[in-house]
Every structure is written in C-alpha cells, then in structure tokens.
Amino acid sequence: GLEHMADEEKLPPGWEKRMERSSGRVYYFNHITNASQWERPSG
C-alpha cells in the first residue's frame, strides 16, 4: 500500500532501485559509489 511506497522513497543518499533487464530481478544501485547489491541498503 501507500506505506510501502513511502518506504521505497527512504533509501540512503545515492541509492536507487533498478531492474535487471535480463532477469527482471530488482536490485539497488548507488550512483555515488557505483555500488550495487540485491539487498535493500540500510542507513
């Protein structure tokens, strides 16, 4: 619901949600550090 939507907005600075086109899996990418990970970043 709306709570989940708001929660997605609160990623740490630099992080954004991305989708891997080949598999459709969602991952997280940090455009500041060029880091990427499957787990939702905390902090």
Rank of each mutant, 00 (worst) to 15 (best):
S36F: 10
K17F: 03
A35V: 15
A6C: 15
S22E: 13
G43W: 15
H4F: 13
R40E: 05
K17P: 06
E3Y: 01
H4Q: 12
A6K: 10
Y27M: 03
Y28E: 01
E9S: 08
S36Y: 10
G14E: 05
N34D: 05
E20L: 08
M19N: 06
E8N: 12
A6M: 11
R21G: 12
D7N: 10
S42V: 12
E39P: 04
G14L: 02
L2W: 15
V26A: 07
W15A: 00
G14A: 04
M19T: 14
S36M: 15
W38K: 05
A35W: 08
Y28I: 00
I32K: 07
W15L: 00
S36K: 14
L11F: 02
L2K: 13
Y28A: 00
Q37N: 02
Y28D: 01
V26W: 12
S36Q: 10
M5P: 13
H31W: 14
E8T: 10
R21I: 15
E9W: 05
E16D: 03
G43T: 12
G43Y: 14
G1P: 12
H31E: 09
F29D: 02
K10W: 14
I32G: 05
D7A: 10
S36D: 03
E3T: 13
H4T: 14
S36W: 15
P41V: 01
N30M: 01
I32Q: 08
R18T: 03
R21H: 14
G14I: 01
P13S: 07
W15Y: 01
S23G: 05
G1L: 12
R18N: 02
R21E: 15
E8C: 15
A35L: 14
N30H: 04
G43Q: 13
Y28T: 00
E39F: 05
G14Q: 04
L2E: 14
S36V: 15
E3W: 00
S42G: 10
Q37A: 04
F29S: 01
E16R: 03
Q37I: 04
E9D: 13
W38D: 08
P13W: 09
V26S: 06
M19I: 15
G24Y: 01
G14H: 08
W38G: 05
L11M: 05
S42N: 10
K17N: 02
H31M: 11
E20Q: 11
F29R: 02
S36R: 14
N34K: 14
R21D: 11
R21V: 15
S23M: 04
R18G: 02
E16L: 05
S23Y: 03
G14D: 05
P12R: 01
P41K: 00
S36T: 14
M5V: 12
M19P: 02
A35D: 09
E9Q: 09
Y27K: 03
F29I: 05
D7H: 10
K10G: 12
S23A: 03
N34L: 12
M5S: 13
S23I: 04
S22A: 12
M19Q: 09
S23D: 06
Q37M: 06
G43D: 13
Y28H: 00
L2P: 12
S22W: 06
L2V: 12
H31F: 14
K17H: 04
R25E: 07
N34M: 11
K10S: 12
P41F: 01
S42P: 08
K17R: 11
Y27T: 01
R18V: 08
G24A: 04
I32H: 09
W15S: 00
K17S: 06
R21M: 14
W38A: 06
N30V: 01
S23L: 04
R21P: 15
L11K: 09
K10V: 12
D7M: 09
G1N: 11
I32Y: 10
S36P: 03
R25Y: 04
S22H: 13
E9G: 09
M19F: 14
E20W: 06
H4G: 12
W15E: 00
I32N: 08
Y27E: 05
H4E: 14
N34S: 08
R25L: 09
E16Q: 09
G43H: 11
F29G: 01
N34Q: 13
G1W: 10
P13T: 07
M5N: 12
E16G: 04
G43I: 13
H4I: 14
I32V: 09
P12T: 02
H31R: 09
S22T: 12
R40T: 07
E16Y: 03
T33S: 06
R21Q: 15
E9T: 08
R40P: 11
E3S: 11
A6D: 14
G24F: 02
K17L: 09
E9K: 07
M5E: 14
E16K: 03
H4D: 14
P41Y: 03
R25I: 06
A6I: 12
E20P: 02
G1E: 11
V26R: 03
E39A: 05
E16W: 03
E8I: 10
G24V: 02
W38F: 11
D7R: 07
N34Y: 06
E39L: 05
T33V: 03
R40M: 07
S23P: 01
S42W: 07
R40A: 08
N30D: 04
R25S: 04
R21T: 15
V26F: 13
G24T: 03
P41S: 01
S36L: 11
H31T: 15
R21S: 14
K17W: 03
E3N: 11
G1A: 12
K17V: 11
H31S: 14
N30I: 01
A6Q: 13
E8W: 01
I32A: 07
P13I: 08
A6Y: 13
E8L: 06
R18S: 02
D7L: 09
T33Y: 06
F29Y: 15
E39K: 05
K10Y: 12
L11Q: 02
E16F: 04
E9M: 08
S42E: 12
G1Q: 13
R40D: 05
A35M: 14
N34W: 05
P12F: 02
E9Y: 07
F29N: 01
M5Y: 11
G43S: 13
I32R: 05
